[in-house]
Design a protein around this nucleic acid. Structure first.
Ligand SMILES: [Mn+2]
Ligand SMILES: [Mn+2]
Ligand SMILES: [Zn+2]
Ligand SMILES: [Zn+2]
Lengths: 156, 156
DNA sequence: TATTAAATGGAAATTATTACCATAACGAAA
DNA sequence: TTTCGTTATGGTAATAATTTCCATTTAATA
């Protein structure tokens, strides 16, 4: 089994447990959305509309509101992260593992998104919080600018 | 003259120069909004609506769209910064000085906003950008959690 | 002062997201 | 399996922030 498939199974387990604990229901729609999101969007940052349009191709009966609701559900149980890159629409990405916390560099020119992780930054932030007696729960960090491709294209 | 007044004059100069350069017009409304923003919102993070409501008290003829347009103008010439703290509405703060670059900690409980600056984080980000051949233009960094007051209130 | 370009205010349009509601589907119990 | 209370769904309407439109006003400058 591929690493992606293993991760998908782990997320499925978390999701099922959350549904059981909260006495929610397991539905066809949730299964479809789960499958699409965790099969095709690992490492991506997808818009609700993009995901909806993609799913609709194979499952035309799925409603827009359900996709919104299901992504929110994924958030609640910690298997998806919401991202906001300043274009006014929320993006979602499957959580890969608790240890794979990361941030993003966004190219203002082409819109491509690059990921990065940095332990030094993380420990800085923890220190800053501690110093201010602030109990950190989450943080957001994005770098905006020009990616190397667009930089090259500009000088060419 | 107080430091706040000096800063206000410096921003005014930048604004006037920008208006001259771009052949824009100096209007009563822009003066009013400038004055309100740089007199009463230094160190604050004000919503368009808040600023509009505040101005309307003394200048009932000012239009909503004009406040939006003028804040955008302040952004363009670099005398205001836009902030987004995840509540769906943009906030603006007067730029204090080019050297006073800073970030924010937002309390999820009481909504208070705390500012911080950290050279180590800044140089980390520059290094990360350089390593990825990314030409950094801006970055956003926010810490969310519980402020010390709210933490204390919770255990009490 | 006359001319031209830009700005204004109010309202309408736009856009992402949420709420509503009548109907359908789920799941535990009988 | 049938029943029954609860939850989910899909379509649409509502909401909320921001932008656009446009007829009118105003500023700049010759
Ligand atoms: Mn990512
Ligand atoms: Mn600030
Ligand atoms: Zn690029
Ligand atoms: Zn607080």
């Amino acid at each position: 089994m591929t690493p992606v498939a293993i991760r998908k199974m782990e997320r499925r387990k978390t999701f099922n447990e959350y549904i059981a604990k909260k006495r929610l229901k397991s539905t066809k729609q949730r299964d479809i959305i789960f499958d699409e999101f965790f099969s095709n969007y690992m490492g991506k940052h997808v818009t609700v509309e993009e995901l909806y349009e993609d799913i609709k191709k194979r499952h035309p009966f799925i409603g827009f509101a359900t996709v919104y609701r299901t992504l929110k559900l994924f958030m609640e149980c910690g298997i998806a992260s919401e991202r906001n890159f300043g274009d006014g629409k929320a993006r979602y990405e499957p959580v890969r593992s608790e240890r794979e916390h990361h941030h993003h560099m966004i190219c203002n020119q082409c819109g491509k998104i690059y990921e990065f992780a940095n332990n030094q930054v993380e420990s800085c932030l923890n220190q800053i919080a501690k110093l201010n007696e602030f109990q950190l729960t989450t943080h957001k960090l994005e770098i905006y600018g020009l990616c190397s491709d667009c930089k090259a294209a500009k000088t060419a």
